[in-house]
Design a protein around this nucleic acid. Sequence first.
RNA 1: CGGGGAGUGGCUCAGCCUGGUAGAGCACCUGGUUCGGGACCAGGGGGUCGGAGGUUCAAAUCCUCUCUCCCCGACCA
Length: 587
Amino acid sequence: MHRWSELFIPTLREAPADAEVASHKFLVRAGYIRQLAAGIYSYLFMGQRSFNKIIAIVRQEMNTIGQEFFLPTLHPRELWEASGRWAVMGDNMFRLQDRKGAELALGMTHEEVMTDIARKELRSYKQLPQIWYQIQTKFRDEPRPKSGLLRVRQFTMKDSYSFDLDAAGLDVSYQKHYDVYCRIFDRCGLRYVVVEAHSGAMGGSQSHEFVVRTPAGEDLVVSCEKCNYAANLEKATSKLAAVEDLKPEGDGQPLLVHTPGQKTIEDVARYLGVSPQNKIKTLALMASEVATGTGKAQPVILLLRGDHQMNEAKLSTALAGRETRPMQAEEIEALFGSPAGFLGPIGIEWATSLKDGDKPILLVDEALKDRRNLISGANKQDYHLKNVTPEGNFHATAYADLRSVTTGEGCPNCGGPLRIDAAVEVGHIFKLGYKYSESMGARVLDRHGKEVTPIMGSYGIGMERILTAAVEQNNDADGFWLPPQIAPFEIVVVPTNVSDDQLRTTAEDIARRLETAGFDVLLDDRDERPGVKFKDADLVGTPFRVNVGKKVTEGTVEVVQRSTHERHDASISAITGHFEKLLRPAR
RNA sequence: CGGGGAGUGGCUCAGCCUGGUAGAGCACCUGGUUCGGGACCAGGGGGUCGGAGGUUCAAAUCCUCUCUCCCCGACCA
């Protein structure tokens, strides 16, 4: 039996001064975790107990579709060179040398190791499909760890990898993961949403994120108030309300107007008495191949509607993964012959395709397509141009979706209003395609004896984020309560006074019977005043409490539901049946 | 990496400006009273004031350098 008096559950009255978000404050106060360094945490008894329950759920569900492995966390450099990611991962990868000076990395993800096994072992289509997973520590040297366990440098991930003969097979593996992830998060008691996501540095074609809405989150998710559309902000699109174009002025050709000192979109719009929606926003960037840093940078000019924001993920997609940085003042002068603030697309010869490496690229957001008589910078200090019409007065290298959706715009499916919420990403599934199997040389023979490259998927769950998200979703001024499935204890039994023999022995008896019935029970046998015990019980995440007090003489105790503070009397003799109904309703 | 903030007992903080015997509350130990929402009384233990260097008769306090942590930004499978 778990007796509080003998356990190490170091609760704190006050939150540590450096904790900001609820989950961080409460996990520390409840004695679940302690910090060792920035983004590095120790799990104490209560934290590890909850964590083990989460792991058990994930393992049990994953075993229905895949096979559990356990891969090394120490990776030789050569492996990462093979996929090309030794350079790509940059400072985010922890690196070290062995005694011989050979270079190693701490694993931040395991595509390389899994693919290495696949390329050495898989020979025939008859061996496919395969789904391999592990629950393992990952190391990422985040530039800025934050928010307690929400963004850390060492964490535990369930990562899985699928190998299929063809795209149709990948669809099946992907869907299996989708379904299993839903079961996992359901069983963990999370309120989550699945959103379309940008596949980012992982590459690949399709991707979904499983996210939990909370202000503490770092992701922004867009969802429709009317239908079930949901997408990460990096991916979300919207329908825009029509904008009325300006009337042409003069002969309808671009018309120079003096705008002294008016640099920002808002300034110019106000000065000229027009809406920013009738303005062109011109952004000047330099693009280069990721990682090499050696290839020459190519100018990329972005045009957006004046009131829109550029979306970096979409830009990265439009540029086929090349990375960008803002142009420096000298580079702007050299290309436009004008200082920033008065830039525009006219008077410059643009590339006709993205491959055309000698000329600057002009990427234009789709929201500017078919617009007329816009106002842009004139590439001349203190001047702007009126009557600027895309394809009439300049030619885009390409049109693309480059802007971020904003609240209230129309859902792309149904037109309903979109909302944007902060969220924590707890799971992510990717269709990787051939990126790793191709670069690392995994091949099998198909049924015709022809050599083919298996197609891959990769799938991750941030294990501690399940705990963190649950705390973010279930807390109040006094502490938090976890869903019973992932709580370190389901029930805490609290005798109000242990020096009263009857209360103490009754509490012991109740705790023992509940434990025998299969519940995780914590008996608070400490010689403390009731108030102290109640406060602690409310703090440490147990969803139910049994108060063993004066009413034992009547044969009853008090059952308190932590989430609502609702309390009701229950008969001592029928206490196990009582909790069977509360906690095991399905049985 | 840019900007901001903070390091004083286990926790939360005061003291620093204006240099002069290191403090409070909580926690902890002992004894007693108490016992349904973080009790009270009495006694007690515990601090290289993040580190190094400097100024000074004298440094938690002033100066220089440095380390660490937190927040905002950049970044982020």
